[in-house]
């Protein structure tokens, strides 16, 4: 564990807490893409299958349970909670995320560290996470104005993977047999997808103005 990875995990956790706060405090999920939440739930379920077979550390196990539990709770809330689901931007959240699932699974069958079921699912979860924010970014561009908590949620979600890239660079130079090229390439793509959001988020912070994404 290094400071980049720990900060990355805490940033990821913070993004989930901000999202839970927004939904709980405002009883609204306006501006949040249900499709991105469903993709993230799938990412965690596919990646943390080894939850009960490979014990790595208490921290690792607890964080996996928190990520799986919170992502499923958010999807449940957005689908079932009568107050919350009324505020869901259904007509704006129309990105065909099933294509993302199919494409990532095909890619995982072709490109993986070992052609074994757990490794294919792990690669699938890495590729899917890289593109899972697309429906959310599309929804933000369509919905124009972004409320503060939603903006902070997306910013933290993008920042965590950027910190993981620093973690991979650090591990590459400090660990002899370290190779995470699948996660690293996917992580670079994932972070690059946030580039224009980061730019407009920085502008809104610098000008102390409302976050506006050009539609």
């Amino acid at each position: 564990m290094n400071v980049f990875r720990l900060t990355g995990d805490m940033t990821h956790l913070a993004s989930i807490l901000v999202l839970l706060l927004k939904i709980y405090a405002t009883k609204s999920c306006s501006g949040i893409s249900l499709k991105t939440q469903e993709l993230y739930a799938l990412v965690f379920l596919a990646r943390y299958l080894n939850l009960f077979t490979d014990f790595i550390s208490v921290y690792n196990t607890v964080m996996k349970l928190v990520f799986i539990g919170s992502s499923l709770a958010i999807v449940w809330c957005m689908r079932m909670h009568k107050m919350v689901k009324r505020s869901y931007d259904q007509e704006l959240d129309t990105f065909r995320h099933y294509f993302l699932i199919a494409g990532c699974f095909l890619l995982a069958l072709l490109v993986n560290e070992k052609f074994m079921f757990p490794e294919v699912l792990w690669a699938f979860s890495i590729y899917l996470e890289a593109v899972s924010t697309i429906p959310q970014l599309v929804l933000l561009q369509r919905s124009g104005n972004v409320d503060n908590l939603t903006g902070q949620y997306v910013f933290l979600l993008g920042a965590y993977r950027a910190l993981y890239i620093l973690n991979w660079i650090y591990r590459y130079f400090t660990e002899p047999h370290f190779s995470r090229w699948i996660a690293c390439v996917a992580g670079l793509v994932q972070t690059a997808l946030y580039a224009d959001f980061f730019y407009y988020y920085f502008l809104s912070w610098k000008n102390n103005a409302k976050l506006q994404l050009p539609s």
């Binding site: 490979d54 690792n60 964080m63 792990w122 660990e175 996660a183």
Partner: peptide, 10 residues
Amino acid sequence: GSGSMEHDEL
């Protein structure tokens, strides 16, 4: 498992 193969990250 071996360091490189085991997925020790979240």
